[in-house]
């Protein structure tokens, strides 16, 4: 059975009528119309669906929509805009990171949550923070360059 669930996404409230067990990903993509988190695996193994809930990077593909409660959801589109980009978005453009680009949400959203808490991380700390996220095109080298660049920008 469906129920009405109100979600705060990128600063706005949205009410969706959904199965409480439905993963947040489908509410974001289909009910709220935000295409930025992607379906990659549905198993929390790849990161393509990553969003923030209250600043914590979570995998929306396995997070029941009913579990979000009053948590503030931020997607990649809510992280920054061309006019007011997040340093990671700037760094991604500067370093020309993506190839197909389908993995972007995993890296940027996870790195953004990490860099918000950890100033001046070492390369080893960055790698550990990003462990397990997938990029199939093999842009690993550029991803690390971009995260280091963003970390430097964030002081």
């Amino acid at each position: 059975m469906t129920q009405k669930i109100t979600l705060n996404v990128n600063g706005k409230n949205h009410t969706v009528d959904a199965d409480p067990d439905m993963p947040l990903l489908y509410a974001l993509r289909n009910d709220i119309g935000l295409n930025n988190p992607h379906f990659g695996c549905g198993l929390a193994q790849c990161g393509a669906c990553t969003v923030h809930v209250d600043g914590v990077a979570i995998r929306s593909c396995i997070t029941p929509v009913s579990s979000v409660g009053k948590g503030k959801v931020v997607t990649l589109a809510g992280l920054g805009t061309p006019e007011k980009p997040h340093p990671l978005q700037t760094a991604y453009v500067e370093e020309q990171v993506p190839q197909c680009g389908y993995c972007i949400n995993g890296w940027i959203m996870t790195a953004a949550a990490f860099l918000a808490k950890k100033k001046k991380p070492s390369e080893a700390e960055i790698k550990t923070a990003l462990e397990g996220i997938k990029c199939r095109c093999g842009t690993h080298v550029s991803i690390l360059k971009a995260v280091k660049r963003a970390a430097a920008m964030m002081g």
């Binding site: 930025n36 997607t75 990649l76 589109a77 061309p82 980009p85 993506p98 972007i104």
Partner: peptide, 10 residues
């Protein structure tokens, strides 16, 4: 590439 910014800004 000019498609990187549109990708990171969704």
């Amino acid at each position: 590439r000019e498609d990187v910014a549109p990708k990171v800004f969704c």
